[in-house]
Design a protein around this nucleic acid. Structure first.
Lengths: 339, 339
DNA sequence: TTGTATGCGTTATCAG
DNA sequence: CTGATAACGCATACAA
């Protein structure tokens, strides 16, 4: 059987048909769910396919069905603990419903979000999931008109076309304030970043108003891009003054880790005795012994499940353009005084 | 111009041609690099395409060229700091050479690596990059015979068909030993995991033999899957005994972080005074103030660059099946005594 | 430069 | 159950 010499090319159904001594249609039917093939032909085809190394060309198949099986995941900072976990969860569930994820990294230049949207159209993706960034509305509409699902994660501008999945940042931020307030903190700092992401802004705002209602002023510090470094820098700035805060709400766990490290390493402070800290996201590091950060858990599983639910329901009548919001539950650890 | 009502379907070149009043070919040529179209038709086509929201169907285009532009990234534990950084770097560079990444998460069941290989064939990917896991040799050969690039990262079995990219784990592990030995450590523990990955085993082995050559015995602890938890548990086990080690080589930064936390939180030990620690990977957390871990930097950029280099070279005569190895350079921080 | 015709690999339809 | 044939959206050789 020296027939299978390295063809340097993909095997087609035609070749399989010839080797099996049947028609192309028979091959096609063998690999189509719910088609009627006799057991004998089926066996012959399967065997021929195996020896030749045949695999159905989904690209060609997608030309006929309006279903490529591709879902585009668009996002920046995908190496961030939160985003990588989200991508992990989404890809896993997508595969469970026979879809495959195409991830487009928009970390580069500014207009790469637009380029990403174009890619999703070029590859006839069934759906586009925007994890971060602001896509041009016109392109979103093109996607929608093309029959794509467009799923926006954590945007505040709830457009009517796309489906919006968000986290109730405001509720969590309010709760964060009350946790700190009940613990006796009165000079509370908010540590944020210069990113200005809708989620982050929502957390800042809600915390600020909750504090205002309790008669407290808060100062917001934005010392750089969202991450450990900015948190550390914020700690350095805030704690070197004479009027040190006695608590901090960090809008991200990464910021919180940096902030805590600055407090302890640079100023020798004890958490939570001298300084209470609350974070957001519940990244893995928040649970590490060095931090034991009290924070709010991102509903990653719910988000991923909801996405697959939207895509799996092949019901074309399904109402598109809804908005769902999941709760971020508090995770009590050790950076807030119990009392 | 009420022609552009939401078609719930992708726009085809045909429709653009009709609106522009030209032939299908003219549309095709407008979007094909190096085709000859007059400026007038080009303008007309572009305008029609814009109003209709037309985007070239790469799936159909790939049917003609043997070039889908898709590169499959296959791996498990993609939410790990090391893997997510690798994926970030690779996707970024892939996009720079006009390719798009399809990531297949093999975290689920065991034979999902095989399923992943099948997907890469189904989607006629130009290349398959295996970040982790052991794909069946037969399927690898199918990929190769189909004309795909197959790139294996950090596998020790250097097959002749695929291209292998690896890190010189042995050299780094040897260096790790000498760093600790020179610092005066004599009771050195190796902290590893039960994963048994080629990389990890190579590090263990090389460290062990280097120690043996210096007349030292090392004990290897594998307390769970590669991660913070296993490192913490290893610390608990190793440091509770009466014969405490005075140094540890953790084959992964995540293990090292867990180990250090156990040493400090559970046993109140000082690093590096009472205990030296060396990690591997140089994940972001290794540089955090709480750890300041001395470790070895994964050559992520080189790996990503090499991959794109392999794929960008459209030279079909290019020798396939090579092996490259990059060095992991030491990053000196504070967990090893200077002396 | 432009249009016509053909083929890429697949599936759906239809006749047998 | 099976095979021939027409699409799917696109690129290109060819003729004009």
């Amino acid at each position: 059987m020296s027939e299978l010499k390295p063809g340097r090319s993909f095997v087609s159904a035609q070749q399989v048909a010839e080797l099996a001594g049947v028609s192309r249609s028979a091959v096609s039917r063998t690999f189509t769910d719910g088609a009627s093939v006799s057991e004998t032909t089926r066996k012959k085809v399967l065997e021929a396919a195996e020896t030749l190394g045949y695999h159905v060309n989904h690209l060609a198949r997608s030309l006929i069905h309006e279903d490529s099986g591709i879902v585009c995941l668009i996002g920046a900072d995908i190496n961030t603990p939160y985003h990588s976990r989200l991508i992990d969860a989404i890809t896993r569930r997508l595969q469970a419903i026979n879809r495959v994820a195409m991830v487009i990294n928009t970390s580069g230049d500014t207009d790469s979000v637009e380029a990403a949207l174009r890619q999703t159209l070029n590859y006839r993706a069934n759906a586009t999931v925007v994890l971060s960034g602001t896509p041009p509305t016109s392109l979103i509409n093109t996607c929608l008109n093309s029959g794509q699902h467009v799923i926006l994660i954590n945007r505040d501008d709830h457009l009517d076309g796309p489906e919006n999945i968000s986290v109730d940042n405001a509720a969590a931020a309010r709760e964060a304030f009350h946790m700190l307030h009940r613990a006796g903190s009165r000079r509370i700092a908010v540590v944020s970043s210069q990113a200005g992401t809708p989620s982050l802004v929502a957390r800042e705002r809600a915390f600020e108003t909750a504090a205002g209602e309790a008669g407290l002023d808060v100062t917001i510090t934005r010392a750089g891009p969202t991450g450990y470094g900015a948190g550390f820098e914020a700690g350095r700035l805030l704690l070197s003054g004479s009027h040190r805060p006695d608590a901090a709400f960090c809008v991200t766990d990464l910021l919180a880790c940096g902030f805590m490290d600055a407090a302890r390493v640079e100023f020798g402070m004890n958490v939570p005795e001298e300084l209470c800290v609350v974070g957001f996201d519940d990244i893995e590091q928040a649970g590490w012994a060095s931090y034991q950060l009290t924070t709010f858990r991102q509903p990653i599983v719910q988000v991923a499940d909801h996405i697959t639910m939207l895509l799996d329901g092949e019901d074309p009548l399904r109402q598109r353009g809804g908005s769902v919001s999941f709760h971020a539950d508090p995770v009590w650890r050790r950076t807030v005084r119990p009392k």
